[in-house]
Design a protein around this nucleic acid. Structure first.
Lengths: 149, 149
DNA sequence: ATGCATGCAAACTCTTTGCAAACGC
DNA sequence: GCGTTTGCAAAGAGTTTGCATGCAT
């Protein structure tokens, strides 16, 4: 379980298990949408009304420095996205409807291993994004085209 | 040639070929290190002493909107990196030194085709980034560790 | 009891925007 | 000449930092 890995990682590094940190770890482990610091902050605000955004940033940096979460870089929105799922997975982004779909493929591991062995990099994670038109939007475009012709 | 593609793309879109834009296209086409706006700016400052950083940002945004260059996202340094090479290829980002290197793999095309056929997406482009520690930084870390023990 | 973590606010960095002057077409 | 583009400066957005208070150990 991801949550246990995060908490154990903090404890093993001698870092304190404050309620805020545990809650942030919980959000990261339960989230499926690669949240930003702001997203984590807002999802915890009801539970921790005095929570500071700075605390979220500090905790995320701590987790990243410990290698417990991965900072994925901006996703076109200028904000850092974090991922506690270190398994590599493919994201499919539709340029029409802007939905993001996960795509699990077993070859991603073999690709990663090839890249690692060929490059000498110690690979920690991956951000694999394909941009395109999803089937729904493609069908909608076809329908519109038929209506015109 | 990448430079010709960039210039033609600008012209075909009715955008003006100013000396600044041509120079930025030249830097992007010749650069191998996925430059940031600041890197482009500094490399052109000797040639264009009055060049504004804002112009670089505006031009990069124009090129990105036209699909002529790819924004790779931050490489852990909080700055956007750009790539004028649109061939699908793997980027290796070092989380220590923030350098970005290309990794050409022949299977990238087959992966893309598999993803396309399995998902039904009409794939237009890809952003494939692996995060890890480059050999140089890994060696530096090992050296530091040996010094301690 | 110790000293790390929090929370607030200010500072900092990267990027965008507004507008007058300059220039490509 | 017209309308886009530049360059400057200021604003905007996201993230980091300084410091006093609070809390996990």
């Amino acid at each position: 379980m991801i949550y246990q890995r995060l908490v154990s990682g903090l404890r093993d590094s001698g870092l304190r298990l404050t309620p805020q940190r545990l809650a942030i770890c919980r959000v990261l482990s339960e989230s499926k949408d690669h949240p930003t610091a702001m997203m984590v902050y807002h999802s915890l605000l009801p539970e921790f009304p005095t929570m500071s955004l700075a605390t979220v940033y500090k905790t995320l940096n701590v987790l990243r420095e410990q290698g417990l979460v991965l900072a994925l870089g901006a996703a076109g929105d200028g904000m850092e996205h974090y991922d506690a799922d270190l398994d590599p997975h493919v994201h499919l982004v539709c340029v029409k409807c802007h939905r993001v779909v996960d795509f699990m493929g077993e070859d991603i591991y073999t690709i990663q291993q090839k890249v690692a062995s060929s490059s000498g990099y110690q690979i920690q994670g991956a951000r694999i994004v394909y941009y395109g038109v999803c089937p729904d939007c493609a069908q909608a475009a076809d329908t519109a085209r038929e209506r015109v012709s």
